[in-house]
Design a protein around this nucleic acid. Structure first.
Lengths: 208, 208, 208, 208
DNA sequence: ACTTAACCGAGACGGTACGTCGCGTCTTTTT
DNA sequence: AAAAAGACGCGACGTACCGTCTCGGTTAAGT
């Protein structure tokens, strides 16, 4: 999980005094942000007013939970995060297909995709947001893929002269590019992943 | 050129009466847009007021040239367009490297890159802008690449079972992804292009 | 007392169960109102929130005692009321001095004076408040003064052609005006009262 | 005139560039303030929003002319000021009647009266306002009256043992008090002024 | 001793109004 | 006619505050 706050139940055993926060509000607000983004709103252009209105909540309740857009969007990103599924481990090639497959699947979530496009376009206005996203979402997945490819080199499934880093880019970027151009959807995640993997493993040049 | 606009000299033979437009103004305004975008402004968030201010021009002079943001941004995009250089044609592999190389080079222009990121994120707000960009910039280049790859299949440099479309993605997207993530710069355009091409042609799997 | 309110012990013989109201709270709240008024707050501008805060009491406890500002301010006014002291009755002139003297004294209470100024300025917003104040505070005192002056006419201390009503104004208003302009304090109540009375009884024109 | 700014035409001979201010706007805004005050609004409670709305003018145009309430209200007060009419000079008594008469007349302007009540009640929030009002409106009139009374002492119309200052209060305050209590209107200004003057000159005590 | 009901503080909540800001248009003078 | 300066109406935004509501915990009279 990227980040937690507000949403989470407070650790104190004895409840704080005063009326309790409505447990459904935070979720509704996060959903509202995703809705607005997917309808074309920009991160910096999206106002607290619009978010609260869309969520059917008073501005007050929104500002009480998040003081800044950074903090809010951070939790929005966190809500999009999914655990990385474990790999079956039969062969490196099959594992790569599996990884790419889940990536394709993720790219089908239009709200998440648009959120990423916005984040990418407004990295200047929300630098911390971008950094945390890279550090906590992208980096782990990439490390996993690199480890997998290294395993391939070790087992001989991948030629030892191959630049692992570049190979990772070549495998992953065709999927990411689709997300950024909005030229998804890939109909069948597994099929797409398999095609890419086979192509990259096999290469363009004919093998006798 | 993508589009012809105000900047262009009017077709009338006899000049109209009154003061002539300052020839430097249009350029300054387009530059102002690129500056603002590269500083983090969004397309929809950027106002005519801000643009005029940045260009050191009165609002009046801006509105006189472009009535809508679409029209203005269209000319901004046009100003970024560069002619596609001809290929030397020695071998398919070398020609691919050449194409990718110019692509890498283009991706180094930070202002243009940021403009693309913004365009991608705000495709919903400026649909026509996106479509024209694809039709007039992306499509021709892609067609060229596909033709090149097809030539490779014909000459035997590329195995005949290869999916040309997918191959094009795998070659191009690692460069585009860098643009979108803002994780450029690639130090040496030619080197980067060569590495990618060799990897994709050769494949990951060892050859005997 | 103008009005009896929550502070007063309830008429029920058998006390209800449950926790009893804190006896100091009502007084603290009334004091808070006077403090705020004397610091420049207006009646309509003063909020229950601010009053409770100033009194160091929860909003809850305030609303429980008074539902409306009218009701609250009525009790604030009541708390300012003082019994009219009896007159010694030696001569009409001396009794007038005595009456005016207590009036001057009252005008020295800054919190009460500011409350009156506010009431006067906001008579439109709080009409009932103003009317009750006139009916229950001003009117009795004025009736008393008029009676006194009439006694003067009867005893011959005051010329029989004198307009009693106007005379009352001329005697009282110099003191009230000081209150309204905030140009008090009159250093010595009795002296001030005596000077006014002597002047008005004697008149400006020389007597032979 | 109390104070001038904004309203006044600028002293520069050559007009500044840009669109000119609408000459009717300032007057409409000042009128709006007086309307609102006379309807019960307090000075501190009156918002720029409400004033602009009432004047049928955009908030923008209001803020452009006056940045603070102090500045605005100062001009409102200035707009209420009237030149002091010259005295005919037959006798001191007649001149006093004339002065009081114009004072009574002024007290009939309900909007001005309510403005004064408000000013009096909110002297704490607008100290400068109150001070300027006293210095520029009250003080000159009072000085005039004191001079007049002194002339009476000199000519023998007023007994030489009379305290001039106190006499001025006794003459003026019955009229001011009416203003403050909102217990005007005095039907006939001259009559009222004459009655007061005669009473104060003659005194209550019978003259043989 | 236990129940019970009102009191009390803290704080969440919806609603509303405010001052500010920025935009696009309009008006005026100068070039 | 172009250009610059600036007034104008309009609208949105973030903030602040208000009065109500909710909810534990406290207190004291009654069983």
């Amino acid at each position: 999980v990227l980040y937690r706050f507000g949403v989470t139940s407070r650790p104190e055993l004895t409840r704080l005094p005063g009326r309790q926060r409505d447990s459904r509000t935070a979720g509704a607000l996060i959903d509202a942000v995703l809705d607005l983004v997917s309808e074309g709103a920009t991160l910096s252009g999206m106002s607290f007013v619009a978010i609260a209105e869309r969520a059917g909540v008073s501005r007050n309740s929104l500002y009480r939970r998040w003081k800044t857009k950074d903090a809010l969007f951070l939790d929005v990103l966190a809500s999009l995060n999914r655990p990385v599924p474990a790999l079956s481990g039969h062969s490196v090639r099959e594992d790569v297909i599996e990884m790419l497959s889940t990536l394709v699947e993720r790219s089908l979530d239009q709200r998440a995709s648009q959120m990423l496009r916005s984040l990418s376009a407004e990295a200047i206005a929300f630098p911390e947001l971008r950094n945390r996203y890279f550090a906590e979402v992208v980096a782990p997945r990439r490390a996993m893929l690199l480890g997998l490819l290294q395993r391939g080199v070790d087992t001989g499934e991948i030629a030892h002269h191959v630049d692992i880093e570049l190979a990772a880019d070549v495998l992953v970027d065709p999927i990411l590019a689709g997300t950024f151009f909005g030229t998804t959807p890939h109909s069948q995640p597994v099929t797409t992943a398999r095609f890419i993997t086979e192509l990259v493993f096999g290469g363009l040049a004919p093998r006798d």
